[in-house]
């Protein structure tokens, strides 16, 4: 069967909620009925058929051809299969994903991978603020899975992260890893102000000495680290990085001592 393909016909007239278009929610639905699903979020009330030309029939493999910053909630809550967006995404791409693979070949807006619990989300371009972060009122951010941003990420990446792996390869904005509870955030290409701001536990792994760290982080030596070897090899094996990030004995800063202080920021010597 050919992948179920949604080709964007023109720039949408309103913001769209694409959360109904996941492998799970489209399973067993006729193409005619797919075209009638309402995705518009304003008084226009656009339907799938108004926005996209639909082709193919395999809902476990979904492709969006053409992107727009108005495409919100791409693959929200997906549990399996694959979704590929050939273009930019709006807010909350891959929100609350539990499994499967989401590939965004373009830029993503704010809250990409928000509250992810599993699966793999890869963004080839840049991501907005609050990467993997909780929405207002939620207690924890990303809770599992792998989130890769090949470009830059905005501010508050991995905010309140609890589990899983986030990798940002061309630098992040301010407060990367703010309020982290646990989990691993990798940032290559530099960070903005105060990485790890108010982090409790968890690991922030950098490819260079952070420029502006909060004074509530303290120097914790640089012994030989098997963990560094394991994570370096994992990142290369997963195709996330091409070269080792930390080396065999990275420097460690412990913090944030303004809160629990059991987190760490590691970077090569």
């Amino acid at each position: 069967m050919k992948a179920l393909t949604f080709t964007l016909v023109a720039e949408p007239p309103e913001r769209l909620d694409l959360s109904p278009l996941t492998p799970e929610r489209l399973a067993g639905i006729e193409r005619r009925d797919v075209e009638r699903i309402q995705i518009g979020m304003s008084k226009h009330g656009s339907k799938v058929g108004d926005i996209f030309r639909v082709a193919g029939s395999d809902p476990t493999s979904i492709v969006f051809e053409g992107g727009s910053t108005r495409l919100d909630l791409v693959a929200q809550g997906m549990r399996g299969g694959s979704v590929r967006l050939d273009g930019n995404a709006g807010a909350q791409a891959g929100r609350a994903m539990r499994g499967g693979k989401l590939m965004i070949e373009g830029n993503a807006g704010p809250y990409a991978g928000s509250g992810m619990r599993g699966g793999r989300l890869e963004i080839t371009g840049n991501a907005g603020d609050h990467l993997g972060a909780p929405l207002v009122g939620e207690l924890a951010g990303m809770n599992g899975g792998v989130l890769i941003v090949r470009g830059k990420a905005g501010a508050f990446a991995a905010d309140r992260m609890r589990r899983g792996l986030i990798a940002v390869l061309k630098g992040s904005g301010d407060h990367a890893g703010s309020r982290m509870i646990a989990g691993t955030l990798v940032v290559a290409g530099g960070t903005g102000e105060m990485p790890g701001y108010l982090m409790r536990r968890g690991s922030i792994l950098l490819d260079r000495t952070p420029a502006r760290m909060s004074p509530s982080f303290v120097e914790c030596g640089a012994p030989e680290s098997v963990f560094a070897a394991i994570i370096d090899r994992h990142l290369i094996a997963e195709g996330i990085l091409k070269r080792p990030l930390l080396g065999s004995a990275p420097r460690k800063y412990g913090g944030d001592n303004a809160v629990l202080g059991m987190g760490e920021v590691l970077f090569p010597r």
Partner: peptide
């Protein structure tokens, strides 16, 4: 420190020559 890397789960225990 508990670390899940891929599908493997590790514990890092501080000792006098590192971890």
């Amino acid at each position: 420190i508990s670390k899940k890397i891929g599908d493997r789960h590790f514990w890092r225990i501080p000792v006098m020559d590192g971890e």
